[in-house]
């Protein structure tokens, strides 16, 4: 990435844009996984890093591929990530719903909390998620 041809400069600039965007998504998603109040919102934050950040960083790496085989492997990794990550997210959310994890949001029909004895979310990050095995 040291040459000063116009094409090299264009490639470096585009790669910087992609890497900075991907790193921003990555840090925001990691912070969201650490700080979001319940399981489903954390899963939303993790989904950002699994799709947007991974795709942007892999596209940035694709600009530096020396030959066709490396580019094909990068595209293959990107395809696998884009196929498997939403599948894993869907299966995980389905398993959580089937096992009785209650979302933190209010019911959209009645406007009341789904979970009756929930304390106010003052320690949102630490321990307010419902236990895994309980059924409502």
């Amino acid at each position: 990435m040291g040459e000063l041809s116009p094409l090299g400069l264009l490639r470096d600039g585009l790669a910087w844009v992609l890497v900075l965007g991907g790193s921003g998504f990555m840090l925001v998603g990691g912070l969201g996984v650490l700080r979001m109040p319940d399981f489903y919102t954390r899963q939303h934050a993790a989904g950002i890093t699994d799709t947007s950040a991974a795709a942007l960083i892999l596209f940035a790496l694709l600009l530096f591929a020396p030959d066709f085989l490396v580019a094909a492997k990068l595209v293959l990794i990107l395809m696998f990530l884009l196929l498997t990550s939403p599948t894993a997210s869907h299966a995980l959310a389905q398993a959580a719903v089937a096992s009785g994890v209650v979302p933190l949001a209010d019911d959209w029909r009645t406007g009341e909390n789904r979970e009756a004895g929930r304390e106010s979310a003052k320690d949102a990050g630490a321990g307010s998620g419902p236990a895994s095995g309980e059924r409502q």
Partner: peptide, 27 residues
């Protein structure tokens, strides 16, 4: 790029160690 990925991995590791339910840990 690798620094951002490493910091995000650290956050995910903290959540995996401190997650209240088993689904948080799997996630």
């Amino acid at each position: 790029a690798s620094l951002a990925v490493a910091v995000s991995m650290l956050f995910a590791l903290i959540r995996a160690l401190a997650g209240p339910s088993v689904f948080d840990r799997i996630l």
